[in-house]
Design a protein around this nucleic acid. Sequence first.
DNA 1: TGTGCCGGGAT
DNA 2: ATCCCGGCACA
Length: 380
Amino acid sequence: MMPQVPPPEHGAQAMAYRPVSRNIDVPKRKSDAVEMDEMMAAMVLTSLSCSPVVQSPPGAEANFSASRVVSGDPWKESGDVSDSGSSTTSGHWSGSSGISTPSPPHPQASPKYLGDAFGSPQTDHGFETDPDPFLLDEPAPRKRKNSVKVMYKCLWPNCGKVLRSIVGIKRHVKALHLGDTVDSDQFKREEDFYYTEVQMKEESAVAAAVPSAPGTPTVEPAPTPRVTSPSLATLPLPLSKAQTSGPEHSGLESPLPSGALSKSAPGSFWHIQADHAYQALPSFQIPVSPHIYTSISWAAAPAAASPLSPVRSRSLSFSEPQPPPAAKSHLIVTSPPRAQGSARKARGEAKKCRKVYGIEHRDQWCTACRWKKACQRFLD
DNA sequence: TGTGCCGGGAT
DNA sequence: ATCCCGGCACA
């Protein structure tokens, strides 16, 4: 897990990682204002029609930030885009990422995607829906009914695919019909000729969109202006999440939204609050790690444990001594049949402050240890 | 015997 | 609430 120093030749790619720069990026590529407007309209529409609930789902987010992942700061990104408590829903993260993770390392749009479009004509009953993540769980109730939504229909013979976003449709055209020569300048704008704008009622649009949602682990966000490397879209999320704690991002940490901090708080944060775990929330100092293990990484672990662990252990090196999941589950299993009525806690195996720091460094102990209370730093 | 920590006292 | 310690249970 090397720090993703942006290799020079990929500079352009890595630059488009965040919404901000995206906006900057777009106008640069689109010279005429009209198209720009369409673009903006599409984006506005999509964002409007997307409730926070929709945005937060990791699946969407995961894919969404695909290109940004390159920049190696997905955690923060997630905070940016939707700071709704995604950390508690970590299960989702793992789940969806688990599905999308095993991305074939092909630099093309996912093979199945292509295969579908070409191989099975039946997919084009005129309404194959936008495989963009928004519809993943677009909560219909949130929609403003009767509002008209602009959709984009592919005009390619026998295709008729309808997408919500202009970007999506362009991408579709490019990827499927023009061949994935996305970067070549000659096709740069050609895709514009292969789609048309369609106005449809929000409701029907949704109806069209939703059905495809459940089964398909889709891989692409509508408003992604970057078409360059579809494969990126399948980057495993947990991985990126794990990266957050890595020192390699330390430079980016300062602008972190506080929300993200409190939830994910990469190492840099908790040792600021050196010690009062005992009375204060343990989540700020070292004890945080166990919580992270259980609530986040743990959930993600089954699917992506191995890639995670190295990073994790590095960032959480303080709590290294304890083997997270094993210890936890063990605890759960054994605790119910707790020893004879005594409320006394079975002595933990984990090292405690005393052992770790020694009596001579008592000042480094956690407060609990200093007060002869149950250690809060090295929980069992 | 050293250690972890409960229970409770002092401030 | 914070700090401290006697004393017990455990390894």
